[in-house]
């Protein structure tokens, strides 16, 4: 239910991002989803990968500042209003989302990665409202 996301501080966005993807590829670690949060002179790469603990260790050894954060992955069907329904539930429950990003996982649905202050509560509310969360064993293999 709770997914481990890696956040990586990137001082030089383009060059270091290329290096990082190369390191993961060389170590046979699959990236399922990623987004780059862009600040003025640095970026934060957020990524969901297969074998997050190993990936974090490898990246730390390569000199990156790496943090592991809990997130929720929500399956959103490819149909009008799919995302709206989920966000409406969250707003009804007064849950503020710090950030989110999406990736296409198969033909029928997209996966949306969500982070809030209290990720457990976030997951619980979504489940109570019959929203479909992607399980960790599935997501790490996407």
């Amino acid at each position: 239910m709770i997914i481990k996301q890696l956040s990586i501080f990137l001082e030089d966005k383009v060059g270091r991002l290329a290096e990082l993807t190369e390191i993961l590829a060389k170590n046979d670690i699959n990236m399922s989803a990623f987004s780059v949060a862009d600040a003025l002179d640095y970026g934060i790469l957020r990524v969901v990968v297969g074998r997050p603990e190993l990936a974090a260790q490898i990246l730390k050894e390569a000199g990156y500042s790496v943090k592991m954060t809990d997130v929720v992955c929500l399956a959103v069907p490819h149909q009008p209003g799919g995302l709206y329904k989920a966000l409406h539930i969250l707003s009804e429950n007064n849950i503020a989302i710090d950030y989110m990003y999406a990736f296409a996982s198969n033909v029928d649905s997209a996966t949306v990665v969500l982070h809030s202050d209290d990720v457990k509560h976030l997951a619980q509310v979504l489940q109570d409202n019959q929203m479909e969360l992607v399980k960790s064993n599935k997501i790490y293999q996407v």
């Binding site: 996301q5 956040s7 949060a37 600040a39 934060i44 790496v66 954060t69 710090d98 950030y99």
Partner: peptide
């Protein structure tokens, strides 16, 4: 930057 100062947010 050291790990103690951030989690995942700008």
């Amino acid at each position: 930057l050291t790990d103690e100062h951030w989690n995942s947010e700008v």
